[in-house]
Write a protein that binds this DNA or RNA. Sequence first.
DNA 1: TTTTGAGTTGTTCGA
DNA 2: GTCGAACAACTCAAA
Length: 474
Amino acid sequence: MLQFDSALVWFRRDLRNYDHAALYAALKASRRVFCAFLFDTEILDKLPAATDRRVEFIWHSIAELKQALESTGGGLLVRHGGARDEIPRLAAQLKVDAVYANHDYEPAAMARDRAVERALGAQNIVFLTCKDQVIFEKDEVLTQGGRPYTVFTPYRNAWLKKLEPFFLKPYPVDKYRERLARPPATKMPTLASLGFQQTDLTGLGLPAGMSGARMLLGAFMSRMTQYHEQRDYPDLEGTSRLSVHLRFGTVSVRELARAAYLEASCGAQAWLNELAWRDFYFMILHHYPHVVGHAFRREYDALEFPNNKKLFAAWCGARTGYPLVDAAMRQINQTGYMHNRLRMVAASFLVKDLHVDWRWGERYFAGHLNDFDLAANNGGWQWAASTGCDAQPYFRIFNPVTQSQKFDPQGGFIRKYVPELAGCDEKSIHAPWLMTPEQQKNAGVIIGRNYPAPVVDHAAARLRALELYKSVRR
DNA sequence: TTTTGAGTTGTTCGA
DNA sequence: GTCGAACAACTCAAA
């Protein structure tokens, strides 16, 4: 039933033209539907560098989305400005009755949306939002007592129990595609006009847009059955690499969940589990927004981290002397990506070995990860720092050498990112400082000269971390 | 209300 | 080298 003469769909982190909740809702309710994307100055102006892979990823994805919408009779208005002014202005110019968007769960985005809603309301334009980027949101999966879960496993069990094909159905956008309106022809801003330079995303294994996601998903489908066995080895192509596409919505989470749901393999189930984690952290952020800046368990805000700036700089600069940690940090520094296992190793090392506040690490990852997502990043860091819901117990401290031997047994990943150590055999590459001077010479590396000696002693650092955490629990 | 079982991803120590 | 216990008690969720 038609409710509106015309509507505007505001794209944010949902850069696709299929299985799109807000687009479908708008098309279903309106005679004509315009589409718009905003390069938001509130976000872009805060970015420190002139090259930012995320902006570039978005730009390419937007270019593709625009073309896709145009090929079905519609179009995409692309603007550069502040959302609080620009969206109401655009809505007024187009004389729409409603603006549609998909839910965003981050506190800053929610504040922005409330402001936009007020401004639109003042012009008698309604602002309608939809669930799109998760399978179950906010209050859809609750305990029997009607409270949000704070422990993952019972949450996941309830999540899986509720999961039915109905919730995974794609929104059939095509059904109403003749209602897509062609907006007045305008040029899309160039990357340079936004103040950013082009790099080589594809060279980093980061193909943008719906087509990039399609390619990665297609390749992953044949590996999905092995996911549970291969996902922990950074030197293998075990994961989907779709995180950045989930971040910007160039793939639909329903489509991914459907792919896993329809397959009974252990790999598919393990992967589905990861999608449940994603929902879990969005839900946690919604119900417990204090996790932004504070420990989920507030008593852990009392932890007094020494925060040695030199050690933090060594971690950032991949000069800790622990090969797997340094390889991980070079991976994020060079590519904007870090393998999930390594995120845990690097996080544990920063907090439990270098005794640096988890928020420093969280901020660093936020600035460097292409797939950075507030909810998941915060959840992961709090888990590693033992301050979160379902936290790793405080005495569970990753040993960076053991992790290296377990998950990069041949040292292939280390060799790729720390070529100084390429000449080490697979035994000594995990702890190269243990080599005799002669072995070092044969391996072509002198510890302390070509590659740093360990900045801390793990055994001693571990004991100190135990003390640090003990003082809070007393 | 009380009880019970369980809790992402680990490490170390000593037998 | 392999194995089990200890790490420490607490909170959550469900029965």
